[in-house]
């Protein structure tokens, strides 16, 4: 399962990762090896086998949708970690430009 350079760039774009030119070939080789290894799953007959997504079998765990709030110190600690802020507002670039 060898990936092409274009496929690697496409995956990186979907994953929101900018790759340097020299990284593209390195990851192309490594990702191809890993995909080849996991490709052995295709040899397993899974006809009629239900896929598992929750291993202990829990279903529909509910909780009340309630605002907990937080103390002023915690609030400040969170605000301080914004990369860019205007007062107490998070500042970022527009989605549509």
């Amino acid at each position: 399962m060898a990936l092409t350079k274009e496929e690697v760039l496409h995956i990186a774009k979907l994953a929101r990762l900018e790759l340097k030119d020299e990284e593209v070939e390195k990851f192309r080789t490594q990702l191809s090896q890993i995909l080849e290894y996991v490709g052995q799953l295709q040899n397993v007959d899974t006809a009629g086998v239900e896929p598992i997504s929750q291993i202990t079998g829990l279903q529909n765990v509910m909780r009340e949708d309630r605002v907990e709030g937080c103390d002023p110190d915690t609030r400040d600690l969170m605000l301080e970690q914004f990369p860019k802020r205007k007062g107490d507002l998070l500042e970022t670039l527009g989605v549509f430009e």
Partner: peptide, 15 residues
């Protein structure tokens, strides 16, 4: 389907 769903099905067999 080929990777993720397949892996989840093999997960069932491992369990």
């Amino acid at each position: 389907d080929a990777y993720y769903k397949k892996a989840q099905a093999v997960r069932t067999l491992v369990k």
